[in-house]
Amino acid sequence: MSKVLIFGNSGSGKSTLAKGLASQNNLAHLDLDTVAWKPIIPPERLPVSESSKSINDFLSANSGWVIEGCYSDLLELVTEQANEVVFLNLPVSACIENAKNRPWEPHKYANKEAQDANLEMLIDWITQYTTRTDTFSKLAHEKLFNEFQGKKTMYVSNEQRT
């Protein structure tokens, strides 16, 4: 059974690719955004231990899955169970375009207007991808990709995935 991790910068197409793979292959889908944050404004990360419990519940309930997100600290919790990783290593400019054109994500925002109100902050976040050194950084994603021992694929453009 397929067990796929998808990661990359915000706006790289993780959710789109994960939804497509899950649908085509009858796999469960977990967006790590749904287990990484406290439901408060401004957002605050949950402790990794709390996110880990939610991830383990998901793994226990599903034999085949796609897990996606930009959280290398959470992705590292499941790399041993995964049999494939996909790194969406798109240029920052492509991620910004994708973010500007993304459809409403109802599991993250009350409406499209609320999502669009967050766009300026998101673009600033996307722009920092190559200079950050945290769990969300290109550096952390490259390390995760390079250390994975199973099947791995890297996409560097939107066109490669279509």
Rank of each mutant, 00 (worst) to 15 (best):
T133K: 15
T34C: 13
H141D: 00
D57V: 06
S93N: 14
W125I: 12
P43K: 09
D116K: 15
W104N: 14
A18W: 03
S60C: 13
R161L: 05
N118E: 12
L90R: 02
R45F: 07
A82T: 01
M1A: 11
A114Q: 12
Q160H: 00
L32A: 01
V4E: 01
G20M: 08
N101M: 11
F7N: 00
H107F: 10
A99V: 13
H107Q: 15
N56R: 13
R45A: 11
S49D: 05
A99S: 14
D134P: 12
K151E: 15
N111P: 00
K38S: 07
T16R: 14
I123F: 02
S60T: 15
L122C: 09
Y155C: 14
A117Y: 05
F7T: 04
K100R: 04
N83W: 00
T131V: 15
N118R: 06
V92H: 03
N83R: 02
D124I: 11
T131H: 09
L88P: 01
R45D: 10
N9E: 08
K3A: 05
C70Y: 04
W104P: 11
M121Y: 09
K112H: 03
Q81C: 08
G11K: 06
L32S: 00
N89Y: 06
Y129R: 06
E84D: 04
K112M: 03
L139V: 10
V4H: 03
I40T: 10
D31Y: 05
A36Q: 07
P103N: 13
S49Q: 06
Q24G: 07
V85Y: 02
F87G: 02
E76Q: 12
S51T: 13
R161P: 02
N56I: 07
Y71T: 05
W104F: 15
V4W: 01
F136T: 08
V92L: 01
W37Q: 04
N158S: 12
S63K: 09
W65L: 04
W125G: 10
I55H: 01
I40Y: 05
Y155M: 10
L144I: 00
L46T: 15
P43H: 08
N25W: 07
E44L: 03
V4Q: 00
N146G: 08
H107S: 14
L139Y: 07
V78Y: 05
N62V: 01
S51K: 09
V48S: 00
S63A: 06
P43I: 09
A82G: 01
H141W: 00
K19N: 15
A110R: 11
K143Y: 04
L17C: 06
T162H: 12
K53T: 11
C95L: 11
W65R: 04
S12E: 10
N62K: 00
L5A: 04
I41Q: 06
S52R: 07
A22C: 08
E105H: 11
E120D: 15
T127H: 06
I6E: 03
N118V: 05
E68I: 07
P43S: 10
V78G: 08
V86C: 02
I6Q: 03
V78N: 10
Y71F: 05
N62G: 03
T16I: 13
L17R: 07
A61L: 15
T16V: 14
L119H: 04
A117G: 09
R102W: 02
L75K: 01
